[in-house]
Every structure is written in structure tokens, then in C-alpha cells.
Design a protein around this nucleic acid. Structure first.
Lengths: 281, 281
DNA sequence: ATGTCTTTGTGAACGCGTGCACAAAGATGG
DNA sequence: CCATCTTTGTGCACGCGTTCACAAAGACAT
């Protein structure tokens, strides 16, 4: 789900299922809201509604943490807040570095959600010498040269990468080499890391593309299909199309019999009728 | 996975599994990179490595789209780029509005990944009258009052919410009422939407908390456990703790026998020894 | 043509996550 | 102390997603 390489079977060590871990922050947020309103206890049903999940699922999730509820009553809000915080490791604070102080990096640095929840921005790092010394969100940006020293001196184990895609892997390698073992990656690249390092990815354009897919299907279901055929017909068309492509390539090979034909952007042909709209990365 | 409310059994209509859809953008990115290097064909093994997934999974994913490969050779890069683009609905461009032009909203507006991949920022909307008219990323910010008109005039069906948590649900409701059916939510709240509307959530602090969990476990596995007991012991302790909480509450009830005791931040007590560090939302 | 070699496409098994439904636990009232 | 009522905790079944492993398909050489 997160790691680019690590084929971890998720939950291994007799711990909490990964899916549950991913929901704990959700519960914590809902509970904190209740806590602020001084609500003493909450039932699984109520809390589940607040967190937007099924109540049975919530109870099962909590059962992995231990039996923290009282039958007939519900859960003690304050106590549960503490237990979840503890389970998530939020009772200590984690120094975090943000690498790549562009628009996004600066926005992250200014994001209030960090400091308030056990995370402390230990440093902002950027490769641009012109940025060095400039304050962002009240913290002076430091140059990439200092990266290793910053990590070591502050005991940083969590790094946030907000650089352009091209620099991400290199930055990642340096972070890992310096001792970082958890990375939150905003760059649109697959990061390769050694075992034992966790990577989570946040990718805006991927999210949008997933939405676009569903959006298109909604539109396609309502109206008559313009560029979409039935599933069976599509499979057949696909097979024909593949054949067409092959023939084109063979013809090309005849024309230029030498090595592998550098079939650039020239001989592409939309077998489904219209010209394929290929867009850059 | 995404929707806060919609209990969609994922894949329903004989289409492509949700998990596969989520990976298509990944494949597309890897393929686009290959395309730029004019690589004509690619095997499932190579492409899988580039996308950071299992090759069998990749082949199965592609099999849902149709038979686009050639046995003994691999997949035609250009053709596959087109097919995936088409499947994801990226052959048309989607007008998108961003609501909430703070640090994050501005960063999103400036993000290049939008325009280059079939998405067009149709408008930037903010509730602050002082922002109105100010250009961000070359686009003049418009006031929230114009929201409905903007959506309708531009035929916007995808909205991005980058407002503070408090305003998110209200903005969401207005977007949906105006015709938006897909929402990308950056605000740390659970959004409630009617059926047929897709919501995907991006939550920075949740991602960090998940990382913190794993980070803590890594630390706990190496060194002697400081605040973590064995799983069995923990369950027992939990039960004892719960009992302690109950007794406290009973005592409190005796002291102030009236209605529900407003157990604010005063009578909380860390049953595991130390004081619970409860942090704000 | 025929055989060999590569790579796809997929049947089948397995494991995780989800949700139902219910028994056990405890609160509450008499 | 007993009965009733609420809510938790969980056994169980089901479905989705992942992975293995292999047959079929096609390229390529002879």
C-alpha cells in the first residue's frame, strides 16, 4: 500500500492489522473532538458514525488494542484518547524534516496539523542556495549539504520529501543513509528503499485520475456510450487492435530492417478510431 | 477506501476492480517515461519493476482492460499509454475548481501535475473577500459567492477542498448541490455526501501518524520496551485499567450525585502509570 | 514447417478485511 | 438478589485482492 519495494505481508508480528492502524488516527480525531466537548463516554455506534465507519469494524479494531470498553455503557473518551495516542506513538514527539521547500513544502511547513499532534518540524531543507537562511513558517531553511548533520544531531527518524520527482530518489537515499526510517513522499515517483524503511506516498494527480475514472463511468452510464463499447465487444476490439499494431510494426520493420525500430511518436495509431491523445508525464 | 459514507462494494458494475484502478495511474506514469525515451515495447516484468509492483499483479490488472500484450514480446508502450489514458478518462480534460486558497490551496494551484495530465484548473475560490481578484498561479481568485455560478458555467464535476476543517462540510454541500460529483478532500474531516458522489481524502497528519506507529514499533522491537508490555500482559493491564476508571467514575458520582458528571480534563488519570498526554485536535 | 524459447493471460488457492449476528458482561431498576 | 436492558467483544462466513504456477500464444531460428 505504501512501500515501493518492501513486500511486507502487512501485519506480520502479532500486532495490529494494517487496516486498523490506518483507522486509528480517524478514531483519535473524532474522540478528541468529543473530549473537547467534555463528553465522558461514547458508544461504538456513535463513534463509528462520527468517524464514518461501520460500528462492528470499530469494535473489532478496538479489540486489537485490548478491552477498553464497558458493556452497556460504551467507551471512556479520555481513556481511549490516551490509549490510541499511546498505541500510535503520539505520547512522544517526533522530530520531522521537510526536504524541498517549494510551494508544497512551504505549505506543509505552515500546516498546523503537524505541531499539534506530536510532530515537530525540526528543519526545512532545500537544494537552492538562494533559499538558505530564508525563514519559512518561522524556521530558517537550511541547505541540502547540511542534511546528514541535521538528521544526526536531531535524531530525526521521519522525513518528508516534497522535492521535484527528479530529485526524490537521491534525497531519499541520503535520508535513509543518515538514519531516517520512515518517509512521507509527495514527489510523483516510486521510491526504492531498503527493508525496514517505511514509505508512504501522497500523490495528488493519482487521486485525481482515480476520480476521473469514476467520473467518466458515471457519465458513460447515463448517456449513450460514445467512446465506450460493451465489455465483450471491447475485448474483441482489443484483440483486433493488437493485431493491427503488429502489422504496422512488421511493415515498419520491412522498411527499416535494421535493429529495433525507433518507433518514436511517429507511427503510433489509434486503433479505436481516433488519434490517441498522449500527454506528457 | 475513499468515500466517507458510500458503502459501495467497490467493483460492482462488471468493471475494473477498484484496486486495479488505483494502480493504473502508476502504470501510466511509468509508461509515459518509457514513451519519452522512445522505448517501443516493455515486458510485464520490466514495467512492474518500474511501477514498484508484482508482475503477476500487473498482468492481471491489464487483463481487465483487454488483451493488449503480445506473448513472447510484451506490451506496446504507446498503445498501452493510450488505452490506459482512455480507460481513466484522460483523453478529455476535466475542469477542476479548488476551494480554499490558503497555503495548501495555493500550492495545489501551482502544482504542475494538474494541467499536464488532463486536468484544468477552471477556478480558484476562497471565502476571504480580501483574496478576491488576487492572482494565484496566474488565475484570479474568486469569492465563494460565485461558487454555484462557476460550477454551472464551466461544467465542473470535480472539486478540490483545501479549506480549514470547519468549513469543509459546508463547502462540500454547496459543491454537490451545484453539480459536483467527485471531491478530493484535503481538510481533516469526514465528509458526508449523498450516494453517487465520490470522495477521496488526502490527510497529511493521518499519514504521519501511521508512520509514527511503525516507527515506534521498530524502536520497541530493538530496545527493551519502556512503555510497552507484551501483548498478553497488555490485555490484562487494560482490563485492570478499565476497572480503575470505573471506580474513579463511581467515586466521582458519589461526590456529585447529580446528572452526568462533566468530567473535563480534570479527573483523567493514566492507569498505566504516567499522566496521559492528551493533545488537541 | 517444425521446434524452441519467451512472455502473456488466467485458473486456483490462499489470506486479509469486512460485516453479521449473537452470546457474554455489566449497568440499571425493582 | 433477581430480572431486564444495553452495549461490547468475537466467532463465523463471505468476498476481494494477491500470488503462484502453468498452459496457450506467438516470436524466432533452423
Amino acid at each position: 500500500m505504501a512501500t515501493g519495494r518492501t513486500h511486507r505481508p502487512a501485519t506480520r508480528s502479532r500486532g495490529i492489522p494494517e487496516a486498523t492502524v490506518a483507522r486509528l488516527p480517524l478514531y483519535l480525531r473524532a474522540l478528541t473532538a468529543l473530549s473537547e466537548r467534555s463528553v465522558p463516554t461514547v458508544s461504538s455506534e456513535e463513534l463509528a458514525a462520527a468517524a464514518g465507519v461501520n460500528s462492528a469494524k470499530l469494535r473489532k479494531d478496538f479489540s486489537y488494542l485490548g478491552s477498553y470498553g464497558t458493556r452497556g455503557v460504551g467507551y471512556d473518551v479520555e481513556y481511549l484518547v490516551y490509549q490510541i495516542s499511546r498505541e500510535l506513538g503520539l505520547t512522544q514527539d517526533w522530530p520531522v524534516v521537510i526536504v524541498g521547500i517549494g510551494n508544497l513544502g512551504a505549505a506543509l511547513a505552515n500546516y498546523g496539523g503537524f505541531a499539534s499532534r506530536g510532530f515537530r518540524v525540526a528543519a526545512l531543507i532545500d537544494a537552492d542556495p538562494a533559499m538558505a537562511g530564508k525563514p519559512v513558517a518561522g524556521i530558517a531553511v537550511q541547505h541540502t549539504d547540511e542534511l546528514e548533520k541535521i538528521i544526526t544531531d536531531n535524531g530525526v527518524s521521519i522525513g518528508v520529501i516534497a522535492t521535484p520527482a527528479g530529485a526524490a530518489q537521491q534525497v531519499c537515499d541520503r535520508l535513509v543513509a543518515a538514519g531516517v526510517t520512515s518517509i512521507l513522499n509527495f514527489a510523483p515517483t516510486v521510491l526504492t528503499v531498503p527493508d525496514g524503511v517505511d514509505v508512504r506516498k501522497v500523490d495528488l494527480s493519482i487521486e485525481l485520475q482515480i476520480l476521473a475514472f469514476h467520473e467518466q463511468r458515471k457519465a458513460g452510464e447515463d448517456a449513450g456510450h460514445d467512446d465506450e463499447e460493451s465489455d465483450d465487444a471491447r475485448a474483441v476490439a482489443a484483440r483486433e487492435a493488437r493485431r493491427a499494431v503488429r502489422e504496422v510494426r512488421e511493415a515498419a520493420a520491412k522498411g527499416a530492417p535494421a535493429a529495433d525500430a525507433p518507433a518514436g511518436a511517429s507511427d503510433r495509431k489509434g486503433p479505436d478510431g481516433d488519434v490517441p491523445a498522449v500527454m506528457p508525464a
